[in-house]
Simulated assay, not measured.
Amino acid sequence: MPQVTVHLRYEIDPDKLEEFTHYGREWIRLVDKLGGTHHGYFLPSEGDSDEAFALFTFPSLAEYEAYRTASFSDPECVAMFDYARETGCIRRYERRFLAPVLS
């Protein structure tokens, strides 16, 4: 099965960039812990101040789906879902699935 890379586009609250940065750092670790390879979060620098991105790869779509299922019961993941909701650092997000070309 081919690898799948997940591309997340976030609409964030620019006044809560510190909270979103904390959220991103934690999810990098959690995705790696649950079998993926995180390629990082990309925060606003120039241009739109309320848009951020993330990329991470799983060996297959099935392994991504297993990660999603596990994330809903993993205590650390649940805590981060709650953190985002409580801080309001994320207004909305979109998810896309891509076929990566990696070296």
Rank of each mutant, 00 (worst) to 15 (best):
M1P: 15
M1D: 14
M1I: 14
M1L: 13
M1W: 11
P2E: 07
P2T: 08
Q3V: 03
V4P: 01
T5E: 08
T5V: 10
V6I: 14
V6A: 13
V6S: 11
H7M: 11
H7T: 08
L8E: 13
L8D: 12
L8R: 12
L8F: 13
R9C: 05
Y10N: 05
Y10D: 02
E11A: 06
D15H: 09
D15V: 05
K16R: 13
L17I: 11
E18N: 08
E18C: 04
E19R: 03
E19W: 02
E19K: 08
F20N: 10
F20Q: 08
T21G: 07
Y23K: 00
R25N: 15
W27C: 00
W27L: 00
W27P: 00
I28R: 14
I28T: 14
R29A: 06
R29F: 11
R29Q: 12
D32F: 03
D32T: 08
D32R: 10
K33C: 01
K33Y: 07
K33T: 13
L34F: 04
L34A: 02
G36F: 02
T37C: 02
T37F: 05
T37H: 08
H38V: 07
H38Y: 09
H38S: 13
H38D: 13
H39E: 11
H39F: 15
Y41S: 08
Y41V: 01
Y41E: 09
L43F: 15
P44Y: 06
P44W: 12
P44H: 11
P44T: 12
S45R: 13
S45Y: 12
E46T: 13
G47T: 10
D48S: 15
S49E: 13
D50L: 04
D50K: 14
E51D: 15
A52S: 15
A52R: 15
A52K: 15
A52H: 15
F53W: 13
F56N: 04
F56A: 05
F58H: 06
P59K: 05
P59N: 04
P59G: 04
S60D: 08
S60L: 10
S60Q: 07
S60F: 04
L61N: 01
A62H: 03
A62I: 04
A62Y: 01
E63S: 06
E65T: 08
E65N: 14
A66C: 09
A66P: 04
R68W: 14
T69N: 03
T69F: 03
A70T: 08
A70E: 11
S71N: 09
S71K: 09
F72T: 13
E76D: 13
E76T: 10
E76F: 03
C77Y: 09
V78T: 12
V78F: 10
A79V: 05
A79K: 14
F81H: 14
D82V: 03
Y83V: 01
Y83S: 02
Y83P: 04
A84P: 10
A84D: 10
A84T: 06
A84S: 11
R85H: 14
R85F: 12
E86G: 02
T87P: 10
C89D: 11
I90V: 12
I90F: 06
R92P: 00
R92F: 00
E94Y: 09
E94P: 03
R95P: 02
F97A: 02
P100A: 05
P100E: 04
P100C: 08
L102P: 00
S103F: 10
S103K: 07
